[in-house]
């Protein structure tokens, strides 16, 4: 169906579709059939990626929005709503994505950036990722020396505004500072909220659980239908927990 539809488009429209899909193509060598094939391949690649990166529940859910088979070709948005790229404030936010990854986005006030860049020995910006013992309640400072377990830095460019952070440990607290570096001197520009990566719970020895009714019930709850020895068929979240070297057991 998509092939028929693509073939009915003018060469100019095909260029536009290819461009929208981010396809690099030497337009001086324009060949209609070839371009249709390249676009079809790109669609198929997207489709495959969606299948791989979405579980059954998500794939089924997407069907309720599936009213048009060639949506990418048909959708022509007439009205474009303008929104700012940034809000001209210095701020950093941390969001938990899964036990191992977090997403952070930040913004920098333009005047502050100008002032920093005017400094003779401005070296750049960086993120400092902290592993913390706990999150202090009632607005208490969580970044005190005795509460910081570990940290590492990620240099970022002025044009960057977000990053995916590998947390590395489960069941721990994390926070981020957005910092500048001028002549070797660090300055904290903004601190993020604090997140906690979810902790894991699984039997210490998965081979010897058959005598433990509680553990058997747990297995029935989610693991019974999987071959617990064959890691490839275990849900990713369970694999993540089992592979981790930093499990917090509670049995």
């Amino acid at each position: 169906m998509t092939r028929d539809r693509l073939s009915s488009y003018s060469l100019f429209d095909l260029y536009k579709i290819a461009e929208n899909k981010g396809i690099k193509y030497n337009y001086s060598d324009a060949n209609r059939e070839e371009l249709v094939e390249i676009i079809l391949d790109a669609f198929e690649e997207d489709e495959n990626e969606r299948e791989i990166t979405n579980n059954a529940a998500m794939q089924l859910k997407s069907k309720k929005y599936d009213i048009l088979q060639d949506y990418e070709l048909e959708a022509q948005e007439k009205k474009v709503y303008s929104i700012p790229d940034r809000y001209n404030e210095t701020r950093i936010v941390l969001l938990l994505r899964d036990p191992h990854w977090a997403y952070t986005y930040w913004d920098l006030n333009e005047n502050m950036v100008s002032e920093l860049k005017n400094e003779l020995f401005f070296e750049g910006f960086f993120l400092r990722v902290f592993e913390l013992k706990e999150k202090k309640s009632f607005g208490g400072d969580s970044y005190t020396k005795d509460n910081i377990l570990d940290y590492y830095d990620i240099p970022v460019d002025e044009g960057d505004d977000s990053w995916y952070i590998n947390l590395g440990k489960i069941g721990k607290f994390f926070g981020i500072e957005l910092c500048s570096l001028v002549y070797g001197k660090e300055k904290i520009l903004s601190r993020s909220n604090i997140i906690k990566s979810p902790r894991g719970f699984v039997a210490e020895n998965i081979e010897n659980i058959s005598n433990d009714p509680g553990m058997m019930t747990l297995l029935l709850s989610g693991l019974w239908d999987y071959n617990v020895k064959g890691e490839n068929v275990l849900p990713q979240r369970i694999i993540s927990i089992m592979e981790s070297q930093d499990l917090s057991f509670n049995n």
């Binding site: 579980n55 936010v93 969001l95 899964d98 997403y103 977000s162 849900p235 990713q236």
Partner: peptide, 19 residues
């Protein structure tokens, strides 16, 4: 969601919306 956490709703394709 996929893999059991937030990855469907924070992804390279949609993370820009949260700011």
């Amino acid at each position: 969601g996929n893999k059991g956490y937030s990855e469907v709703w924070i992804d390279g394709k949609n993370d820009w919306i949260y700011r």
